[in-house]
């Protein structure tokens, strides 16, 4: 195998992996703090992709410039989904939350199918086919941007969670709700914020994806499946795990595609998934059970 094949595959894998990591970060944040398996994650990504799509086709807004619109909008959407819907329907029971998010996902997918049909839609951006020449490979500009921005957003999230008062409160609530309440931390508000941040990462992912990707009503499923694998691979609730796991899975998919052919690329992901479950069920960076 020559470098001219391998290097582009690596680059391709890393850039895909960065997006996987971003989607997984949102999922792992929601799981780690609220202990919710959010089945609506993929559908919300799909809605975000349509949102960015229509901002572009309807109003002519570039997907990257849509970031400051889509991210706050989805943060607010996520916050109110948690405070307005999930909080009131869950009655504090995890299986209820599971069903609520699953139901939400079914509703969103079918509304999308009803309104927008199952057509595959793409947008045209002037830089869509531009490439950066790094000598051994050509990196498409949209993928380079996605890679850099996804890592930047991950770093921002890491700073927020690790170094700020809000982040400390989030980590406090994740493990010790009662203690947090007694320090005056509004636990329900923190839940809303986490769901909001988790949903906002999807909007960011959508803005970064769309210039080199497509949208259909089913597009979320592929991502959420990989995102769940990422979260399990990295360790449920672990930030580093989501980031490293996402990049690994991107590379595995790309390498699998290279060796087995494009359509079988994802097989590697699930082989890894099964191996991790067999030999390290808490994931690469998973802590001791709570």
């Amino acid at each position: 195998m020559t470098a001219s094949l391998l290097v582009p595959a690596l680059v391709n894998g890393l850039t895909t992996g960065a997006i996987y990591a971003l989607v997984a970060l949102g999922l792992t944040l929601i799981y780690g703090v609220l202990h919710i398996i959010n089945f609506a994650h993929g559908s919300l990504l799909m809605v975000a992709l349509y949102g960015v799509y229509f901002l572009n086709t309807g109003l002519g807004i570039d997907p990257y410039l849509a970031l400051p619109i889509a991210v706050p909008a989805f943060f607010i959407l996520g916050y109110f989904l948690q405070r307005g819907v999930i909080e009131h329907t869950a009655h504090g029971r995890d299986q209820n939350i599971l069903l609520v998010t699953l139901g939400l996902s079914i509703i969103l997918d079918n509304l999308a199918l009803y309104f927008w049909r199952s057509d595959t839609r793409t947008i045209d951006v002037p830089y869509g086919f531009d490439v950066i020449d790094i000598g051994v490979a050509l990196i498409p500009v949209p993928r380079a941007v996605a890679f850099g921005a996804a890592l930047g957003i991950a770093a921002l999230l890491w700073f927020l969670i690790g170094r700020t008062d809000l982040g400390r409160a989030i980590r406090a609530v994740a493990r010790e709700r009662q203690g947090a309440r007694l320090m005056g931390i509004d636990v329900e508000h923190i839940y809303g914020l986490c769901f909001g941040i988790g949903t906002a990462t999807l909007a960011a992912a959508a803005c970064l994806l769309l210039p080199s990707f497509y949208v259909t009503p089913q597009v979320g499923h592929a991502f959420v499946l990989v995102a769940f694998t990422t979260v399990v691979l990295g360790g449920m609730g672990s930030f580093t795990g989501a980031l490293v796991g996402g990049l690994i899975l991107g590379l595995v998919e790309s390498a699998g595609g290279l060796i087995l052919g494009e359509s079988l690329g994802q097989i590697g992901i699930f082989i890894i998934f099964i191996l991790v479950l067999l030999f390290r069920p808490t994931g690469l960076f998973g802590g001791k059970p709570a």
Partner: peptide, 27 residues
């Protein structure tokens, strides 16, 4: 009106410093 609860209920994953800082989250 601040309560130090039975069973301590410190934040296990957070450092001692971070636990103290969260004590002044609201006040």
């Amino acid at each position: 009106l601040i309560q130090v609860p039975e069973g301590r209920r410190v934040f296990p994953d957070l450092s001692v410093r971070e636990n103290l800082l969260l004590g002044s989250y609201r006040r």
